[in-house]
């Protein structure tokens, strides 16, 4: 009998955003997440739990990150904003069709590696 034990470590980048995620702050988020992608990271949890406001420029950053992560063989899972109005905008723009959207970071960590 042979026993082989190996360890697999999957790195997940948890990006927590709070406050106002808009056309002013979006370039910074884009730059930081693209840097992570360029460094080889491919699994991302975007924690939007405490987001107070989000516009289309911010949403475009999320879409861009998803494309990059998928191209690298990874994925992006969103933690839903607790603000009902912010969540409503994500649903209005059909984010739930292309992103996994869950209630908390722990669930997101499990989901994102099951892509």
């Amino acid at each position: 009998m042979e026993i082989q034990i190996s360890e697999r470590v999957i790195r997940v980048q948890v990006v927590t955003l709070s406050g106002r995620f808009d056309a002013f702050s979006a370039p910074d988020v884009r730059q930081q997440t693209q840097t992570l992608l360029a460094a080889g990271e491919k699994y991302f949890v975007l924690n939007l739990r405490d987001l107070a406001f989000m516009d289309s420029a911010a949403m475009a950053v999320l879409v861009s990150l998803l494309k990059g992560a998928r191209t690298a063989g990874g994925g992006v899972t969103l933690v839903k904003p607790k603000d009902e109005n912010a969540l409503r905008i994500l649903l209005l723009t059909k984010f739930d069709r292309v992103f996994k959207m869950v209630e908390d970071v722990d669930t997101a960590m499990r989901e994102v590696i099951n892509v």
Binding site: D55, S56, A57, M59, L62, K94
Partner: peptide
């Protein structure tokens, strides 16, 4: 209308 989120056009839709 939009079928899914994209990197452009969502502002005018919203």
């Amino acid at each position: 209308t939009i079928d899914e989120p994209s990197e452009g056009g969502m502002g005018l839709f919203l």
